[in-house]
Simulated scan of single mutants.
Amino acid sequence: MDHAPPQLRSSFGSAAVAYAQHRPDYAPAAVRWALDPAPGPRVLDLGAGTGKLTATLVALGADVVAVEPDPAMLAELRRTLPAVRALPGSAEAVPLPDASVDAVLAGNAMHWFDMAAAGPEIARVLAPDGVLAGLWNLLDDAVEWVAGLARVAGPAAVGPRDTPAPWRAATARLHLPPTGPARFGSPEQALFPHGQRRTAGSLAATLATRAGMLVLPGPERDATLGRVRTYLAGRPETADGEFTLPMLTGVLRVRPL
């Protein structure tokens, strides 16, 4: 579990519309790999936000139910994906029956879960041989200008799970409840190429939806975004028009013991 301040966990609702507009989807190959061991098509998108992962799951033919605790994020999910069953709830209190899903997936959300409570709940709703997977969209800092962007943006905008090497370390044990009866097997991690079409302005807007940015005082947030815009304006890769932001979708996949 990530012991982040409560204001970080609850920051996204204030930016639900911007989150839906600017956050990327997930690499379909990553989602397929996450689901590959699942015994059936029933998938819970847990901590679903505005439905970024939900939409990819629907496109891949999964039978999806989305659960999201923030009312503003849930309202945006329901607006954009009206055909999806979307419920208020949390990882610590999942509003589903026992053994009712074949997979539990979480997109950029598992680090917010209190696994002491969420672990038993996830194990409860999973069918036998079900799978738990967390997915994160990462900046590909093997690309020189992306590494420079991460340095300029700073930790409020590009945190410890936002580039591949620290992501591997930060997520490796997120699935393990610190106490209680629920236990999960050995984790598997994998990275899949991804990208998002952006302009300098829309990339700055994307970074502005990160939790660390949402809780910054206004002057600090403006200063950070100003540095980002100046950097992007000075790079040939990003100075004019649209470009593809090099990304990776990282997956942590486990099964209950």
Score class of each variant (00 low, 15 high):
residue 65 V to Q: 01
residue 94 V to A: 14
residue 134 G to F: 03
residue 174 L to M: 14
residue 31 V to A: 11
residue 45 D to I: 04
residue 81 L to H: 14
residue 227 R to I: 05
residue 16 A to T: 01
residue 141 D to E: 12
residue 67 V to M: 06
residue 120 P to T: 10
residue 94 V to T: 09
residue 249 T to Q: 04
residue 190 A to L: 12
residue 89 G to N: 08
residue 3 H to P: 15
residue 39 P to M: 08
residue 158 V to C: 13
residue 142 A to T: 15
residue 15 A to I: 00
residue 68 E to T: 03
residue 248 L to V: 00
residue 187 P to R: 05
residue 118 A to I: 03
residue 109 A to E: 08
residue 92 E to Q: 09
residue 171 T to S: 13
residue 232 L to F: 10
residue 92 E to Y: 09
residue 82 P to D: 14
residue 236 P to Q: 09
residue 83 A to M: 13
residue 39 P to G: 03
residue 100 S to D: 11
residue 113 F to N: 02
residue 159 G to C: 08
residue 5 P to V: 05
residue 230 T to P: 06
residue 79 R to G: 05
residue 7 Q to A: 10
residue 210 R to Q: 13
residue 55 A to F: 00
residue 188 E to P: 04
residue 218 G to M: 08
residue 13 G to Y: 07
residue 125 V to L: 09
residue 167 W to N: 04
residue 193 P to E: 14
residue 208 A to L: 05
residue 188 E to S: 13
residue 194 H to E: 00
residue 53 L to G: 01
residue 254 V to M: 04
residue 228 V to Y: 04
residue 35 L to V: 02
residue 131 V to Q: 04
residue 227 R to W: 09
residue 246 P to C: 13
residue 207 L to T: 07
residue 161 R to Q: 14
residue 248 L to T: 00
residue 212 G to A: 11
residue 176 L to E: 15
residue 10 S to E: 15
residue 256 P to Q: 12
residue 33 W to V: 05
residue 52 K to Y: 03
residue 229 R to W: 12
residue 160 P to Q: 10
residue 225 L to G: 06
residue 31 V to H: 11
residue 253 R to I: 04
residue 100 S to F: 02
residue 77 L to K: 05
residue 192 F to Y: 15
residue 246 P to M: 13
residue 60 L to V: 00
residue 164 P to G: 01
residue 84 V to A: 08
residue 47 G to T: 03
residue 245 L to C: 02
residue 27 A to L: 01
residue 249 T to L: 03
residue 232 L to P: 01
residue 3 H to S: 12
residue 37 P to T: 06
residue 242 E to Q: 11
residue 234 G to D: 10
residue 246 P to R: 09
residue 94 V to Y: 13
residue 116 A to G: 11
residue 24 P to Q: 07
residue 175 H to T: 08
residue 126 L to T: 03
residue 82 P to E: 10
residue 133 A to E: 15
residue 127 A to Q: 10
residue 36 D to E: 15
residue 79 R to Q: 13
residue 170 A to R: 03
residue 251 V to N: 06
residue 170 A to S: 15
residue 112 W to H: 14
residue 77 L to C: 09
residue 71 P to T: 05
residue 216 L to W: 13
residue 114 D to P: 00
residue 56 T to N: 02
residue 169 A to T: 09
residue 57 L to R: 01
residue 26 Y to I: 02
residue 78 R to Q: 15
residue 104 V to R: 07
